[in-house]
Computed example of a mutant assay.
Amino acid sequence: MLNGWQGWFGTFTGVVVITVVVLPLAALAAWALARRRRAAGATPGWAWQRSLAEVGIVYGTVPWVWMILLPGSQAGAVPARVSLVPLRDLFTILTHDGAAAATVQIVGNLLVFAALGFFAPLRFTALASVPRILALAAGCSVLVEAAQYVLRLDRVSSVDDVLLNAAGAGLAALASHHWWRATARASSDRPR
């Protein structure tokens, strides 16, 4: 099923398998970072929060971006396509491919930068607000969509993807709000 490099690195299945296989390495990286911070004198809670947030951002975002940048079957052969009318692509998918395909498209796009939205405010106090996370995720999404266009990957560069990617990051930031608000308060209470 995953024969050769293309099967491992050039298919959705390969990316998912690699992501699962790398999970123990991600856990080990978080442990090593926390241990290093503890050895440098950090408190255990702070060391673990920072380390988990850093690893979480990378581990939870890179596979999604990797999948987005996988070339389609006509990559390089068809002209790059852009859709700048909000909700047009989602409506087209819904009417042509059905509700299941539209649901997969929506959920997938909501998850692309969800880890970034969840963990970035925990790691970077400057990002501890939903509008900042929305702006960061929208900026990252625009970069990914531009890469799809420039590389002619047989994908549509769509404003719908940007909106859904940013919304997913914003919802994830709200889900972690309790933790990053507490961290922001603790940081502001520390003497400088």
Rank of each mutant, 00 (worst) to 15 (best):
H177P: 00
G139L: 02
R123V: 01
A26E: 10
M1F: 13
W179I: 02
A80Y: 04
T92A: 13
H96I: 04
A182G: 11
L116E: 06
I57R: 09
A26H: 13
V107M: 07
F91H: 11
D161V: 04
R88I: 05
A75Q: 05
M1D: 13
T125Y: 02
P71F: 03
G76P: 13
P24H: 13
V104F: 12
V150Y: 03
I68P: 00
A184Y: 04
G72T: 00
F9G: 02
L2A: 07
V22T: 14
T92M: 10
C140D: 00
G76L: 08
G14H: 14
V78W: 08
P63C: 01
S141Y: 09
A47F: 11
V16G: 01
H178C: 01
A182C: 04
G45A: 12
V58F: 12
G7H: 11
D154M: 06
P86M: 02
P71V: 04
A114H: 02
M67R: 07
P71L: 01
F118C: 03
A80H: 04
I68E: 14
T61F: 07
R192T: 14
V65I: 15
S73N: 02
A101N: 01
A128S: 12
P24D: 12
M67S: 08
E54V: 08
A34D: 07
A167Y: 00
A80L: 07
V130L: 13
R192I: 09
M1Y: 12
M67Q: 07
W66T: 07
A29Y: 06
F124H: 10
A27G: 13
D97F: 05
A53Q: 10
V156A: 01
V65H: 09
F118W: 14
F113R: 03
V17Q: 03
L33D: 11
P121A: 03
